[in-house]
């Protein structure tokens, strides 16, 4: 299996953003999706750095695509979305609003925030030019396997959410702004203080979710350490790793080593815990009772 780096979900300074992609150029991954996924207000802060980052990654031999926004409502966002489709680069569609703007027949990728739950939707997108689809993270392994089989016939590559906080919801309302008693239009970029999202706990202190502007993520970091063989067997062609602010290259290397047989099962989880001893991992959407479940050191329960 290959490794795809998803778009950064968080709001980082322009300097940190550039440094991150500079480092990524030498990481053992096949492709990178970049751009702004969550909030159109963040984009002006790093927009002018995108062309250089794209060039550098292409020169380093990576495939590159630009992501659309996840939720397009405002006039400004519609214009951004239309402009994105005209940039001549591969687009990863994360809101279907991009589709009417894409050049007819041009190949595109489909991101995890598009609802591809079944063969009918997969075939419809393939007919429009989709060549790569990262499936919604909540799909169980049985659905992944069915879709991977259908995708093979359609010539579409299937990706699965491999590692990182899970994107659980997107809203018209900004929770970071609400937390600071500000309106969305006057948010003063409260989300900038939380480069991996702000932890949300239950009233009795149980870690549960993370807020990231208009997005809600899982508290736990999804980790497919225990499903890699099952996913490969199911015909999944790539795992998607989602950027985090600390130790991301270590995570990339652990996945690469695990895929290449240099790291045993459990090695990725161990590497994640070395980086952050308190980190909570999950793989329940694929093989557990609920998304938050973690198969831990036990062998994965479900087979394809």
């Amino acid at each position: 299996m290959e490794l795809t780096i998803g778009p950064n979900q968080f709001f980082w300074s322009a300097e940190k953003w550039s440094a991150f992609y500079q480092d990524l150029a030498s990481a053992p991954v096949e492709r990178v999706v970049l751009g702004e996924l969550i909030c159109s207000k963040r984009l002006p802060f790093f927009q002018d750095r995108i062309p250089d980052a794209v060039t550098m990654l292409l020169e380093a031999g990576k495939e590159v695509a630009l992501t659309s926004l996840a939720l397009v409502t405002l006039k400004r966002e519609r214009k951004q979305t239309a402009a994105l489709a005209e940039m001549g680069l591969c687009i990863e569609v994360n809101d279907l609003s991009v589709l009417p703007h894409l050049p007819k027949g041009a190949p595109f990728w489909v991101g995890p925030l598009i609802n591809v739950y079944n063969e009918g939707t997969l075939a419809w997108l393939a007919g429009l030019g989709a060549t790569r689809v990262c499936l919604p993270p909540e799909l169980p392994l049985a659905s992944v396997a069915t879709l991977a089989r259908a995708a093979a016939d359609l010539g579409v590559a299937i990706e699965v959410w491999g590692h990182g906080r899970l994107p659980l919801a997107i809203s018209g309302r900004c929770y970071h702004a609400r937390l600071h008693n500000r309106s969305k239009d006057n948010c003063q970029f409260a989300c900038e203080d939380d480069p991996d999202g702000l932890e949300v706990r239950t009233i009795n202190h149980q870690p549960f979710m993370a807020m990231n502007g208009v997005q809600t993520l899982s508290d736990s970091y999804a980790c497919t350490d225990h499903q890699i063989e099952l996913l490969a067997e199911a015909g999944v062609s790539a795992l998607r790793l989602s950027p985090q602010s600390q130790g991301f290259l270590t995570i990339c290397q652990a996945y690469r080593d695990r895929l290449d047989g240099r790291l045993p099962e459990g090695g990725i989880a161990a590497a994640a815990r070395d980086l952050a001893p308190e980190v909570r991992l999950s793989d329940g959407f694929l093989t557990g009772e609920s998304g938050v479940a973690w198969s831990g050191s036990a062998p994965a329960k479900t087979t394809v």
Binding site: A70, L71, L113, N115, Y117, P136, P137, E138, L166, L168, A169, I170, S171, G172, R173, F208, M209, T216, S218, G284, F285, G288, E289, S290, G291, V292
Partner: peptide, 20 residues
């Protein structure tokens, strides 16, 4: 309050979601 059809908070906590 979340964009409908694009929320898996419920399946994260319970395994059952509006979409599925």
């Amino acid at each position: 309050v979340m964009a409908e059809g694009r929320c898996s908070l419920s399946s994260y906590a319970t395994g059952l979601s509006p979409n599925m």
